[in-house]
Design a protein around this nucleic acid. Structure first.
Length: 293
DNA sequence: CATTTCACCTGGTGGC
DNA sequence: TGCCACCAGGTGAAAT
């Protein structure tokens, strides 16, 4: 489900709602583990930590967590005592959430009905819960101790800030289809099927073109189209194609702006030609045969 | 190494 | 109503 704009929307929502709150208890389902870090490790290490900040890297949601309080210590001379508001504390751990195709990360009241396929529930000091729900279980949850590991980072470049030169160099000499290249997360982090198709439409580039054969001008049109499309989608809260919702359960509106994605057979919004669907790398790919050459 | 294919899952939709 | 084939926002391992 979630690509860069949806993940960004969720990360912002979770950040606004739970920053400064504290994880009191962590519960994980015991069904076949959709987890990267064993649940016992996650449960043990998450409990007690403050949520310092939540942000997005590629399609990953990264929760920055403050250090565990040290109960068996003599009173800190000037412990900032107040429970909660510890957002100034330097994080020393991370909880990393990847939503896969159908994952949701929700902030709920404790009495909210527990949806089917709920795999994690973090009880917060405020009484609310942070819940991870994922029917298909393609999502992944991981815990990182920043005293032992570096903070999470994605191999791919950020499509919102990449320079023209760097963007062009990603595709130089590559023989695969530009559509497939856009989906490769180690080149660009965060682009998925919807925004690959939409940006290729706005750039006027056929998805089957070999990545290394695009002209300088086409690459620049593509870089700018991608950035525009992603920023526009973030402003509209993402695309709710079937069941995507943000941290509050609200859906996005960018699906109303789609020009090609899942519009097979419908007239192109620009020229009226029926939109075509083909397969590239096993993924449904939509384009206008007239506008994209 | 670069590229392609396929398995991993559940659920919704549309044809018969 | 049921059954079945096909499709879905993503990855990562295996094959080519």
């Amino acid at each position: 489900m979630p690509e860069l704009p949806e993940v960004e929307t969720i990360a912002r929502g979770v950040h606004e709602r739970v920053r400064g709150d504290r994880i009191v208890e962590a519960w994980f389902s015991s069904s076949p583990e959709p987890f990267k870090t064993p649940v016992s490790t996650q449960a043990k290490n998450l409990a007690g930590r403050a949520v310092v900040a939540v942000h997005r890297t590629g399609k990953h949601i990264v929760c920055e967590l403050g250090p565990l309080p040290e109960p068996a210590r003599k009173r800190d001379r000037r412990s900032s005592a107040g429970p909660g508001e510890s957002s100034s504390m330097a994080p020393d751990a991370q909880w990393i959430v990847h939503l896969g195709m159908t994952g949701r990360l929700l902030v709920t009241t404790p009495d909210a009905p527990v949806a089917a396929h709920t795999h994690a529930r973090l009880t917060l000091k405020s009484g609310r819960e942070l819940r991870f729900v994922d029917p298909r279980r393609f999502g992944r949850l991981a815990y990182r101790d920043l005293r032992l590991d570096k903070g999470f980072s994605s191999p791919g470049a950020d499509p919102l800030t990449i320079s023209a030169a760097e963007f062009a160099s990603l595709f130089r000499g590559r023989k695969l289809a530009i559509k497939a290249a856009l989906l490769n997360q180690s080149l660009l982090a965060g682009v998925g099927n919807i925004y690959a198709d939409e940006s290729l439409f706005h750039a006027g580039v056929r998805p089957r073109r070999r990545a290394g054969r695009l002209t300088r001008a086409e690459l620049e049109r593509l870089r700018l189209a991608l950035r525009e499309v992603l920023e526009h989608a973030i402003r509209l809260g993402g695309s709710s194609v079937s069941d995507y919702v943000d941290a509050d359960g609200a859906h996005g509106f960018f699906q109303l702006e789609h020009c090609v994605y899942q519009r097979t057979g419908l007239p192109c919004r620009r020229c009226g030609t029926p939109i075509r669907r083909i397969l590239i790398g096993g993924r449904g790919t939509h384009y206008c045969p007239q506008c994209q050459s």
